[in-house]
Amino acid sequence: MNKILVCIKRVVDYNVRIRVKPDNTGVVTDGVKMSINPFDEIAIEEALRIREAGNAAEVIVATIGSSDCQQQLRTGLAMGADRATLIETADEVDPLLAARTFLALIEKEQPELVILGKQAIDDDCNQTGQMLAALWGRPQATFASKLELDGDKARVTREVDAGLETIEVDLPAVVTTDLRLNEPRYVKLPDIMKAKKKPLETIAIGELAQDIAPQVNAVNWSAPAGRTKGVQVNSVDELVAALKEKGLVG
């Protein structure tokens, strides 16, 4: 195929301990490490493997967000993507807006395969790929743990509650990644240098999407009711006694 488009989101790194701001308007992001959403890193890796196997000519990484997102696009380029597109906006982008915006990019780029993460680990929405596929009128293969290309079709194994489901989709199609699809490569220093020379274009979001009013308003952020540390027992006998006392075992 000609092109694969990979959508990557800049999110708070998964190792960061999340803290809600005291004024309940969001979580603390000042001075916090930001990374490519882990599922999206897997999406890039999968696209690169397809290209390296000779099944695609070009891998494009794209993101919607502030100019800070250039960092994550550069990381994607360092991993091996050919070029990058930043769709710039200062505002929050919800999944429907992201899908509408990526649809406009798809119309411009005409990729045969679009790979997204199954969910962004900040909003945990798990919506964008499905919405994009709906608006595009194309197949979706969500939660992929295996992707095999076969001419103008793809066979995708999906992680579902009941086990592993396999579906076949006609290309072009949207695939969203699950964690076991692959293990992303590490970026090496020379690759970071090379990535600086790769093309990174910036488009204002207004050029691609019109209706940018939020679908769902965020009203208030709060810390979850935490669980507290309980008791420490010193033997299996004590454990059995504690379980019996709570009526949890007969």
Partner: peptide, 17 residues
Amino acid sequence: PVYAGNAILAVEVPEGR
């Protein structure tokens, strides 16, 4: 829940949809 349940978000859907 958002951020893997490390924050709880109250949301409101605007009228008319």
